[in-house]
Design a protein around this nucleic acid. Sequence first.
DNA 1: GTCAGTTAGGTGACATTGTCACTGAAATAG
DNA 2: CTATTTCAGTGACAATGTCACCTAACTGAC
Lengths: 223, 223
Amino acid sequence: MANSVGDWTESFLGTRNLPRRVRDKLLREARVVTYRQGQQVFGPENIPDSLMFLHTGRIRVSQSSDVGREIVLYRVEAGESCVLTTACMLSEEAYNAEGIAETDVTAITLPKNSFDQLAAEEDSFRRFVFSAYSRRLIDLLRVVDDVAFGRMDVRLAERLLVLEGGQDEIQTTHQALANELGTAREVVSRILNDFQKRGMIQQTRGRITLQDKAALEHLAQSE
Amino acid sequence: MANSVGDWTESFLGTRNLPRRVRDKLLREARVVTYRQGQQVFGPENIPDSLMFLHTGRIRVSQSSDVGREIVLYRVEAGESCVLTTACMLSEEAYNAEGIAETDVTAITLPKNSFDQLAAEEDSFRRFVFSAYSRRLIDLLRVVDDVAFGRMDVRLAERLLVLEGGQDEIQTTHQALANELGTAREVVSRILNDFQKRGMIQQTRGRITLQDKAALEHLAQSE
DNA sequence: GTCAGTTAGGTGACATTGTCACTGAAATAG
DNA sequence: CTATTTCAGTGACAATGTCACCTAACTGAC
């Protein structure tokens, strides 16, 4: 199984510049794990005890409310370390975020003592981990800013522009968009209908195409 | 000025167990800084370039919107390191949070190279910093959870119970409570008036007393 | 003690967002 | 083709947020 990712130490900023000896040691001590799309990687009852690097795929990290709503906090992409698993490992405090594999995922897990040793001995690794932490703090600050102060129509316009990403149409549902933004499906349906009435989008069930990107961009920047 | 805090390395979990030699080095290399109540410690245009530990006092860390609203993210208490200054120092990314001295504050600042060396060489220090990061991540997760899913009356009840903390009355304003929760002053006024009508509190300008703590506790736990 | 200015709070009208229940249409499975 | 599931729309209502404006309490100067 480990051969399937070869020398994964080449894939991460925090490990590719380590001495060969250290990399070989990591290759021996770390494990490769895989998750299928839709599978839970971590959660309040599934707290990992090692550091995780994402080799391929993408993990969506989100929080859920007691009444079935959800909000996406951020995503972990290939090449990044999974900061919440690190935080959990180091501080042993519970949190109610969960990570779900958004695609099929291959990850590297590193036991805590390997992590501690590496963080002690290798400057570039330590910087990599601190950097990862800092970026997540800033990601979460952005989520707070959005949720506390942002207008939902503006946030939805922004989200559509990101999802469109040069393609013809967006394949998503109103519920998925609602989860992304931490709101109710009906709110998304109303706003999207308003966008359609104003000629900014066309939509059928499960699909949205942007008809007037300029107008959406204008709305997205109106704060 | 430095004598005013004596051997501050005794005051922090991450430094009190270091070898004497290391502590002496820190005492030489670090600086003591003070801020008056109300003064900005850091912010988007006031980005520090060293690690900060809080020796005495309290710093409120919050975000502001474009239209004058504010939300408190967390507070840094004496004995803690200031994670946002660390994050900023390490990742060199901008963020729109600011730290305001809520009381008169004395803090210790450590240059980056001292920090790097300490993080490399001292296990207990590194754990202290990682721990601080993890706690802040979890704090921010709670803020997101509150803001995205929480009912304002519940959050306000919780806040009043925290602020009361065994005292006869709470000295605060509706605006300060609104800033705490990231909402509008009018919303706080309406909810507090409702609490008063229901006999849970009594209030005059700038002061609130809790009349029915049990009812407030019941409300605070109703989610 | 008086007055002007500042700060704090209240209120009405309205907009936006969220909840709940329910319905209908599109897609899927058998 | 039919039944079931999934997705979306809608109405009624509640909660929250905005804006403008007003009143009352407090503070500082004289």
